[in-house]
Structure formats: C-alpha cells, structure tokens
C-alpha cells in the first residue's frame, strides 16, 4: 500500500470497514509512515470528538406533535371536497353555456328571415299565394314557372 491508498482508507479503517488483509497492510504502513500516522490520528480525534459530543436535551413530545399535525390536516379546507367550490364551478359553466346560446339565437334568426324573403321573391316576384293568375299570351315552361307561385 502506498501513501495515497492509505490516506483514502483512513476513515474506513477507523470505522472497522476494511477486511483483515487490508487492515494488516494498513497497520504496517502506519507503523513506517509518520505523515500518514499523523493524518490517521487527526481523523481519529475528529471521530472521537463527534462521538463524545453532548446529546441535545429532548424537550419535545413527538407523538403529541404527530397528532397535532394529523388534526391540522383534518381541519384544513380541501377545495376538492368543498361543496361551494363545485357549486360555483357548475354555475359558471351554466352561465357560459346560456350566454353562448343566447348569442347564437340572436344572430341566426336574422339570417333565416333574409334567406326566406329572397327565396320568396325569387320563386314568385310580386305575386301572393292566394291570387288568381291568368296568362294571356303563350309562354314556355320556364316562363310559366317564373310567373306561377
């Protein structure tokens, strides 16, 4: 093992995560290399420092906090299940549809009337349906169809 390999394995050695063969080689290297040994000592002191750090006092009831959170969730207004939310949506849709149909009926009757008048004037110009029509002069079929209602 060279210094680079050993320095990368220091933490694994400290945490007893090396296999026996690696451990043996690691110890041999540390015995002969003061630089690596110093680094090992330093990282070991960091680990000891963290392990011996004082435990923070627990002034907090976990279960109480959990049930408070569950209650909070129950009380929260869910828009998906709220009746007013869906009612207002349905009303909005109905209003939109009504406005659409009203606009359509306002526009279409005007066009239908004008079409009907054009057809009437085209089929019998100036002749009412209950009038008696007499044709004095000979006319062909096309002229008759033009005059007759």
């Amino acid at each position: 093992m060279n210094c680079l390999t050993v320095r990368n394995l220091i933490s694994a050695y400290i945490d007893c995560e090396l296999d026996p063969e690696q451990k043996r080689e690691f110890r041999n290297h540390l015995f002969h290399c003061p630089e690596c040994n110093e680094e090992y000592e330093q990282l070991m002191s960091i680990k000891n420092c963290l392990e011996n750090s004082c435990q923070e006092p627990v002034d907090f009831n976990l279960l109480e906090a959990l049930y408070a959170r569950i209650e909070e969730e129950k009380l929260a207004i869910n828009p998906q299940t709220d009746g007013f939310y869906w009612g207002s949506r349905i009303l909005m849709t109905a209003a939109c549809l009504t406005a659409f149909f009203l606009t359509t009926f306002m526009l279409f009757p005007m066009k239908q009337k004008s079409t009907a008048q054009t057809n009437l004037s085209f089929s019998s110009p100036g002749i009412m349906m209950d009038q008696n029509i007499t044709i004095d002069q000979p006319v062909n079929v096309y002229q008759a169809s033009w005059v007759l209602p």
């Binding site: 435990q55 907090f60 976990l62 959170r69």
Partner: peptide, 30 residues
C-alpha cells in the same frame, strides 16, 4: 418512543436549531 432521542438528535444535527428540527421531525413522523 423507542427511537425518540436518536431521531431528535439526527434532526437537530441536520437542521442546526431546535425549531427547524421539531418541524422536520413532525412532518417526517406524519
């Protein structure tokens, strides 16, 4: 309850203050 202390220490060391640790723990438990 068995892991109460360990969980609190973990949350506290992650967040760095008690308020955030308590919020994190509450949401995590939920």
């Amino acid at each position: 309850l068995t892991h109460e202390k360990a969980l609190y220490q973990f949350a506290y060391r992650l967040c760095g203050n008690h308020h955030e640790a308590q919020d994190l723990l509450q949401e995590g438990l939920y």
